[in-house]
Amino acid sequence: MFRRINEKIIESCIKLSGLLVIIFVFLIFLFLLKDSISLFGQYPIGQFLFGRNWLPISEPPKFGIVPLLLGSIYVTIGAIVICVPFGVAAAMFIAEVAPGYLKHVLKSLIEILASIPSVVLGFIGIVWLGPFLRNTFGLKTGMCGLTGSLLLAFMALPTIISICEDALVGVPRTYKEAAFGLGATHWQTLWRIILPAASSGIIAAVMLGIGRVIGETMVVMMVTGNAPVIPKSILEPLRTLTATIAGEMGETVGGSEHYFALFAVGVVLFIITFMINLVADVCMRRAKK
C-alpha cells in the first residue's frame, strides 16, 4: 500500500517537471508576444519589419529592424563560412584519422574550448583581434562584423565538431570495410562514402552551430562596434538583434514604445532560432534512421 502511494508520488513529480518545461516555454513565448503586439497598436508592423532606420530616441522614433537583421545575418554567415569547413575537417580528423591517445586529448581540448566564457572571448576581441584586423585590412576601426564573425566561429566550433564527430562515428563500419575491399584509399572512403552517409548529422551540426551564433550576445556587443546602420560589408561596424536588446533594454522606460519594440525584436529572434532548431531536429532524426 505504502509502496504504491510512493510510486504514485514519484510518478506525478516527474510528470509535473515535464509539463512545467512545456508550460514555461509557452509562457515565455506568450509574454514576448503580448508585449510586442502592444507595439503594433502604436507603430505599423510594415515599418517595423521593412524600415531601414533604427532610431529609437529620435523624434519621431524609428524602429526599422532591417539594419539589425542584416547585422545578424552578416555576422552569422561570416561565422558559418569560417567555422563549418574547419569544424567538419576537425571532426573528420578526430573520428577517422587521429590515433587513440590524440583523439582523447583533442576531445577534452574541445570541451575546454566550449567552456571559455563569451566575455573572455570578447575581451580578446577588443584587446587583440580588433586591432590586428584594423592593421591588417587598414580599417578605420577594428570593431566590425568580421571580428565578431571570427570570435563567433570560434564559439560555434565545439558544437559543430562534437556533433559532426558523432555523426561520422555513427556510420556503420561495414561501409568502410566494403570501400577498402574495393581498393579505395582512406581518403576516398572518407570523402565519397562516409561523409555522404553522415550528411544529415553534419547538416544538423551546422544548423545547431548557426543557432548558437545567432543567439550569442556578449561577444557581438563587445566587438562589432554597435552601429545600427545597414552594413555595406562585413568589414564595417554593425549591430545584431541580440546586441540591440541587451544594449538598449536598460535605458528604456517600461511600457514605452521603445520598450515594446525591443520585445518585438526578441520575437523575431525567437522565431529565427526556433526555425533553425526545427531544421536541425529534423536532420538529426533523419540521421538516426
Binding site: 561495414t174 570495410e177 570501400a179 575491399g181 562514402i193 555522404p196
Partner: peptide
C-alpha cells in the same frame, strides 16, 4: 581480388 561480405554492405548512396 574482390570481396563480398557476410552482411550486404551497400553504401548509403
Amino acid at each position: 581480388v574482390g570481396m563480398v561480405f557476410q552482411r550486404p554492405n551497400v553504401f548509403d548512396l
